[in-house]
């Protein structure tokens, strides 16, 4: 069992992992584990997914409400390229085992979890595979005691990350060797620079830009383009919905959606915006006859956030016959 560290001491420490830019949680995790692959189980809040781009997959525990499952299951991640993983309730262990198998040799697997129940399930299904869990817990929950309370004596607590709302910490629990699976060794210098392997990192709280290739959406086509620039067309449904990620559970105060092309002016004149399924007021900053930016204010809510665009009239793409709405290239999350 781990010896409980002095949280108050740990929380006052901060460390620069690399020269120049402020360290990120990815920097910290890579310093400890080496290159990693992530499964973000905070979906649909998506506290982590877009932060590491394509190295992250989304999955969720279905829960009892079939309507919620059907709704969430309609979303596709990575700009529409891949479905979101639903962990089957009848084969929970098998489902986790499949997800937790690191897809690339030499990379450590980090499951970004949303609850203690999840940690329990992960622990019971990990077998001999090294497993790392990034878990949010309340500040006052004596986080060092959690593994022992759950009977997870082989888990070590390695990292504190201070979240923006100051009510919770993001903790990295690791099993097995620190250095992933060995092929891609961690930066030992960085690791050694972590005081007692625990650090506090400021969560990025500035503007977050989510490219079309990172969208988690329903009612749109797959993103086009490449890693440097991407876009996607909505359609063939009139309603395009996308999950608004909450990086480390922070709420954006304002959203901006860039519409770079609409086939008809009417679709921009009469576009309707939903937030969590309710029509909301918005500002449309027009750039040209057929393009502009939608700006929406976001109220803090307890649940996850879905932004919807309802396109008045769909058009047919002359090049390929697709039924299309508008073309979107990015979603921008802005803090207060």
């Amino acid at each position: 069992m781990n010896t409980a560290p002095d949280i108050s001491t740990s929380m006052t420490k901060s460390v620069a992992l690399s020269g120049g830019a402020s360290p990120t949680i990815l920097d910290a995790i890579e310093a400890i584990l080496g290159k990693a692959t992530f499964v973000d189980m905070t979906f649909p809040r998506c506290a982590f997914s877009f932060m590491s781009d394509r190295e992250t997959s989304l999955a969720f525990l279905p829960g009892p409400d079939q309507r919620r499952i059907d709704f969430l299951n309609s979303f596709r991640q990575h700009g529409g390229r891949h479905p979101v993983g639903v962990l089957p309730p009848t084969a929970m262990t098998g489902g986790f085992a499949g997800l937790c198998r690191s897809p690339q040799p030499g990379r450590a697997l980090v499951c970004v979890g949303g609850s203690i129940d999840l940690l329990k399930l992960l622990a019971s299904s990990r077998g001999d595979e090294p497993l790392n869990v990034l878990l949010p817990v309340p500040v006052n929950a004596a986080p060092e005691m959690l593994p022992s309370r759950l009977g997870l004596s082989s888990f070590n607590l390695h990292c504190f990350v201070e979240a923006g709302d100051a009510d919770r910490l993001w903790l990295l629990y690791c099993s097995g060797a620190l250095a992933g699976n060995g092929q891609q060794a961690p930066d030992m210098a960085m690791q050694q620079s972590l005081p007692e392997a625990r650090t506090i990192l400021p969560v990025q709280s500035g503007k977050q830009v989510i490219a079309a290739r990172q969208f988690i959406h329903d009612g749109g086509y797959q993103a086009e383009g490449d890693d440097s620039y991407s876009w996607l067309w909505t359609g063939p449904e009139r309603c395009f919905r996308m999950i608004v990620p909450r990086p480390m559970d922070q709420f954006p105060a304002r959203l901006e959606v860039s519409i770079i092309r609409a086939e008809s002016r009417q679709n921009l004149d009469n576009i309707c915006v939903h937030l969590d399924g309710r029509v909301v007021p918005f500002v449309f900053d027009r750039w040209s006859e057929n393009s502009g930016k939608i700006v929406v204010n976001v109220d803090k809510c307890a649940d996850y956030t879905v932004l919807g665009l309802v396109i008045p009239k769909l058009d047919t793409d002359k090049n390929n016959g697709r039924v299309i709405g508008v073309c979107v290239d990015k979603l921008i999350l802005l803090p207060d």
Partner: peptide
């Protein structure tokens, strides 16, 4: 409703039927 409901009184909220389970 999936439709915009043009001309309805402003106090009537129009919502996405697919997300009705949330409300």
């Amino acid at each position: 409703s999936h439709d915009a409901g043009a001309g309805l009184p402003p106090e009537i909220a129009i919502c996405d039927p697919v997300q009705a389970h949330r409300h």
